[in-house]
């Protein structure tokens, strides 16, 4: 794991960059959730915008494709009245051979205040944070297999809205944990917020070795794993990252690990079902489950805007002014 906890906080322990859940305490995660709750109310008003970050420039720096994360970050920044620049790596100077550091320096020279970075390599956001000017803040929007902390926080907000008290919860994470930066951040956040039990359910080939060291119980059988759980997080099968031979077929995966109405009966009657998207219907879960009233998948998307507003506002508020 990367040593990022000091880098993320200023001398007063306030958020400067947001790179990983690691090194952030329960009080700070709770502050993010509380602030997000206040921002969620903005979406219900006539004017869905607050003037907090008026005059700030936020850059979406995406070296890897994304729709949901990029658009919700963009919407979050715009609801804070910041100006947003979308920098697409496939059509940018990076494709012409510019280094990450040169890209950063060039954008800093344009007086941008925040970079939201997604990159296929673990540690990319951390690299930016280490080299960023004191008046620039870096948010991690997903780096390789390492972390996707804003996704984890929007999941925590969704769970808290349905279940209130984390300390009594049993949460199951099903699927491709091997390639999932989302799962890693979720496990860290759930442990920091103090849930009673975290279970991971997956075929052996899709579980990282020594995952137990993160404080989870490992199950290789879906029916056993989801017995009496309060929250079920279904992960996407990351076909684009998957080496040949990890799974016999998608059909067989669904037969053994796909979430169906029938299997769901093992969980608590009020269990909620979450998925970070994009959904592979008929692979990770059935359409019936995805569209059921226990599915909170679309609420996760709305909560994503509120959580990202909170994190952008907290981090931008703690950067040093240039003048």
């Amino acid at each position: 794991m990367l040593d990022t906890h000091n880098l993320q906080l200023d001398q007063n322990g306030r958020l400067r960059h947001f790179l990983t859940i690691e090194g952030l305490n329960k009080a700070l995660l709770t502050e993010i959730l509380d602030t997000a709750d206040s921002f969620a109310a903005v979406a219900e008003r006539k004017v869905k915008k607050v003037p907090l970050c008026h005059g700030k420039i936020v850059v979406n720096l995406f070296f890897e494709t994304s729709t949901r994360t990029r658009t919700t970050f963009e919407l979050a920044a715009k609801r804070l009245s910041a100006d947003v620049l979308n920098f697409n790596a496939s059509t940018s100077a990076t494709a012409k051979g510019e280094t990450l550091l040169d890209t950063l320096r060039n954008l800093e020279a344009m007086h941008c205040d925040m970079f939201i970075v997604r990159h296929k390599d673990s540690g990319a956001a951390h690299f930016f944070a280490r080299h960023a000017a004191p008046n620039v803040s870096i948010l991690n929007a997903g780096d390789g297999r390492h972390a996707h902390p804003t996704q984890a926080m929007l999941d925590m907000l969704t769970i808290r809205r349905h279940k209130q008290d984390f300390s009594k919860l049993c949460v199951a994470i099903i699927g491709d944990l091997l390639h999932s930066r989302v799962a890693r951040s979720q496990i860290l956040a759930l442990n920091t917020l103090g849930v009673e039990e975290i279970r991971t359910i997956a075929p052996r080939t899709l579980l990282p070795t020594q995952i137990e060291s993160l404080g989870v119980k490992v199950y290789y059988n879906l029916q056993q794993g989801i017995k009496d759980v309060d929250v079920i997080i279904v992960l996407r099968l990351q076909k684009e990252r998957m080496a040949y031979g990890l799974l016999p077929s998608e059909h067989e995966y669904f037969r053994l690990f796909g979430l169906t109405e029938d299997r769901l009966s093992q969980a608590k009657p009020d269990a909620i079902i979450m998925h970070p998207g994009p959904l592979n219907r008929g692979v990770e879960l059935s359409s019936q489950v995805a569209d059921s009233n226990r599915s909170v998948i679309l609420q996760q998307v709305s909560n994503g805007i509120a959580v990202r507003m909170a994190i952008i506002a907290m981090a931008l508020g703690n950067t040093k002014a240039t003048s």
């Binding site: 602030t35 921002f39 970050c53 506002a313 907290m314 508020g317």
Partner: peptide
Amino acid sequence: SFYRDDFTRIGLHPLV
């Protein structure tokens, strides 16, 4: 809190 004029000086208030 979201309308204060001292955001750029002292940041977001911790208790919103």
